[in-house]
Amino acid sequence: MAAVSCTLLVDDDDTTNYLNQTLLRRMAISDTVLVAQNGQQALDLLHQHCELPTSPTCPALILLDMKMPRMNGFEFLQAYAQRPERENPSVVIIMLTTSLNPNDVEQMQGLPIAGYLIKPLTRDKVNQVLQEHFGQASPAS
């Protein structure tokens, strides 16, 4: 059984999404991996897959890019926090960024995220998230 029933990748870069999907598939950490190109698509997917928060395709983990067109990671988190509580799954949200800008790091403080990681996503970083937030390592480690 996978460590996480469903993971949602939110990134505007197709190559990054492909590489992250491939990594998660090889690590066998999720039964389902959903992909959104921006925050609005992510909200639409949550609405579609989390009508029942216990649905197996309702994400337990969201890997969220900070900077995207249309709706960035910060705007997604603001919109997510305004959704009715019954529609929000119990989810671990990890912000992904290439930025080491202290202003960006400061802006992440106080957001409803479990943490942030510097891109690129690696096997070690995924295992760190799994151990810290789900109490287990990847089955394919």
Rank of each mutant, 00 (worst) to 15 (best):
T122R: 01
P102T: 14
P102L: 13
N72M: 08
Q131D: 14
F134L: 14
F134P: 10
G110E: 05
M108V: 10
V126K: 03
Y116S: 00
N72P: 04
I93K: 01
F134Q: 14
G115T: 09
I62A: 08
E85R: 10
V92H: 07
G115S: 11
N101S: 07
P120S: 12
F74T: 14
M68H: 03
Q82G: 06
I118G: 03
F74K: 11
V129D: 00
R83S: 13
P112D: 09
R86G: 06
N88M: 11
Q78Y: 04
L63K: 03
P112G: 08
V126E: 04
R83D: 11
D104Q: 04
Q78D: 10
T97S: 10
M95Y: 01
D104M: 03
E85F: 08
L77P: 01
T98E: 10
A81I: 06
L96S: 09
P89H: 13
K119W: 08
S99D: 11
Q128N: 11
G115I: 08
Q128R: 09
E132K: 12
R83P: 05
L96F: 09
P120A: 11
F76T: 11
M71K: 13
L117M: 06
D65L: 02
D104L: 03
L63Y: 02
R70S: 14
P102V: 14
I62D: 04
E132C: 09
Q78S: 07
M66R: 09
A114W: 07
Y80T: 09
Q128V: 02
D65A: 04
M68N: 03
P120V: 12
L130I: 12
Y116W: 01
K67W: 08
M68V: 09
F74D: 11
D124V: 03
L130N: 06
M108D: 06
N103G: 07
Y80F: 15
V92D: 05
L63T: 03
L64P: 03
F134R: 12
I62R: 05
L121I: 00
N101E: 07
F76M: 13
I93R: 01
A137Q: 10
M66V: 14
D104I: 03
Q128Y: 06
V105Y: 00
H133F: 15
P84M: 14
S90E: 12
M95W: 01
V91C: 12
D65Q: 04
P69W: 07
M71H: 07
H133R: 10
I62S: 05
F134G: 13
M66Q: 14
D65C: 04
M95I: 02
